[in-house]
Design a protein around this nucleic acid. Structure first.
Lengths: 354, 354
DNA sequence: TAGAGCCTGGACAACGTTGTCAGATCCGAG
DNA sequence: CTCGGATCTGACAACGTTGTCCAGGCTCTA
């Protein structure tokens, strides 16, 4: 039907202009060139049956010649599903989130979906901004590592059917699926490990307790101490922003008071590393167990004993639950808790110094 | 205009059904509820002028009540720009790419764009698949860390106006913008550093030379050796897949031959770490310089001397060039090369063992 | 008070695709 | 030779938004 193509042809007077910047060929163009109907092109592009080999060949040639690529935006609009999921995390540059993100991506890929991700930089407003932007893009689902503690802004989205899984920390004020590490148990076991090696004065340096993981780990510390009948002195714990300067000061204080600690439990990755630096500068050996594993921990002198959580497994589990929601397999929000693993490498097995 | 809303109202017999799973309210719904025209809602949502305060309030209330969120897919279709860019890299879990990705994200954010990313897993087919999927989504631009060496498949996309910047390695067979580290200069300087400390038998363990960065670093090694008048023996270089087993074997071989090397230049991150492990098992000190910095390199005994490249800067530069292309500021593809930095920490300053 | 000009709001088409449905074509069997 | 049915093809509407354009009401001035 050349008639169908005519108005289009008029608008784009010169055939070459179809390949000009920002003016991509559409199925209509392909159809005109191949001398077939619009829908036939759609059929070929989507591999639908009911097209003769000859017609298909003509269409393919036209696609090739014009450099046509289907516009998925239009497709999405029509079909309602975007085949993409969103991941909001704290900071992609953090070595903990890289593997997690990659794991989510792999699961998404297995389901034919792309991953859009964003870093909240631990800022609740930015988290909300990102999440809502992703919803506006109509991602099919969301994996969120929350920065804020109030997620009621998600309610309309949840009602509208956006599948959502929270990871690493639970959602605030709403009932949602969540995948966590056993922060409490891990910390408790780590501290108990130090106690088992003879320590009684054990320091704890962690994040602000308003962060769920930090609070849970602190609780684990207290539980282990209480279980062993050890009263905890206030000066042994330091909770707050975990920038190197503060952690350094905190470590130095608890190591030099009248009742210096003989062991330190570090509440996260960054803390552990800073503590390692502080300890490296001192002659008296101090035991150390850190939450979160990190690369090369085994190569340090001594190797650093850690409570490891499996970031990739966390991401994988979350993504799988997400797609279960999308399949309709899963309906009720659940709380999944993954175990942690104590990896002994030396630093946690040092005996208390006199 | 209740008349306008009527047909819609009929289709969704029950008002509640508008908030049912997968059936989101549209601007039409909002307009009906607020008793205004469709375009007025659009104006309010986009903050366009020409709406009285009272009308705006009514619309805002309807939006609130219905939990409306603009469908960006439709918007994209209409406007032609998606305000999103794609990033294709090798592996998000690799600590080198985390900061790079984050830097790209920050620049994108500053330009109001979201980042979609994908891991090619160093597989050219998967790279192409990802890139084309992103093009189908009509991302405004692409940042690609290429896995393959033939990117002619991108030609139709480039003609269609998809801004593209290659990072870390140049594009193959097409003329495109590219941002690189000075792999050649960095490796040359690193090896020269070893030579300056008295080494003559220096090993090189690197990736397959079909990877551009690997080839350049190898060239740097050869140049440094030649400049110093040192003939290179074949058994001193190992090129291939950089899995731990192979690297370990390679290192052990060059350390135990009749003419054992007294220093090793490691072609990348992973190689460096493996070599550190091998050297830690041996008593005789061997000097080591690695390409790429890594966390805790300073805490090892001895600290590891490295040729550092700034991954974040690489990402930032690439993203900025991308947006310059989109602004129209930039038209001619260019090759940008960022300097590397030698960081001395001890392992590269060891004198050759007898 | 009439006319000009501004401001607000809405009807309509278009973006590029897919689902529906009906028309056209071809084959073989009666 | 004709008819039924299977197969292939295309016209059309719809997805939810934004750009264009025009209508109607208002204010201001002469």
């Amino acid at each position: 039907m050349p008639e169908t193509a005519a108005p289009r042809g008029e608008r784009r007077a010169d055939r070459n202009s179809a390949t000009r910047y920002g003016n991509r060929p559409t199925m209509k163009d392909v159809a005109a060139r191949a001398g077939v109907g619009l829908k036939t092109v759609s059929r070929v592009v989507n591999g639908e049956p009911g097209v003769t080999a000859d017609t298909e060949r003509r269409v393919q040639e036209a696609i090739e010649a014009l450099g046509f690529r289907r516009n998925d935006s239009a497709r999405v609009l029509r079909k309602g599903r975007t085949a993409s999921i969103g991941l909001v995390l704290e900071d992609l540059a953090d070595p903990f989130y890289g593997p997690l993100s990659r794991a989510v991506e792999e699961v998404a890929r297995a389901h034919g979906a792309l991953l859009i991700n964003g870093s909240s930089a631990e800022d609740p407003d930015r988290e909300q901004e990102l999440v809502l932007a992703l919803c506006a893009r109509r991602v099919d689902g969301l994996v969120v590592i929350p920065a804020g503690d109030d997620h009621r802004y998600l309610e309309p989205e949840l009602r509208a059917g956006v599948a959502t899984v929270f990871v690493d920390r639970p959602a605030g004020q709403i009932d949602a699926d969540v995948v966590l590490s056993d922060n409490f148990g891990g910390a408790r076991d780590g501290v108990a490990h130090l106690i088992a090696h003879g320590h009684r004065r054990i320091g704890f340096i962690g994040d602000m307790p308003r962060i769920h993981t930090a609070a849970e780990r602190l609780r684990g510390y207290h539980t282990a101490m209480t279980d062993a009948g050890i009263p905890v002195t206030n000066s042994w714990t330091s909770l707050g922003v975990t920038d190197p300067q503060r952690v350094r000061r905190a470590a130095e204080e608890m190591l030099s008071g009248p009742e210096p600690v003989t062991a330190i439990f570090a509440g996260n990755n960054r803390v552990t590393v800073t503590v390692v630096r502080v300890l490296a500068e001192r002659s008296r050996p101090v035991a150390l167990v850190g939450f979160d594993d990190f690369e090369l921990a085994d190569l340090l002198q001594p190797g650093v004993t850690v409570v490891a959580q499996d970031a990739a497994q966390l991401g994988r589990t979350a993504a799988e639950r997400l797609f279960s929601q999308l399949d309709g397999t899963l309906v009720t929000p659940e709380r999944t808790e993954l175990p942690t693993r104590l990896i002994t490498r030396g630093s946690g097995e040092l005996a208390p110094a006199k």
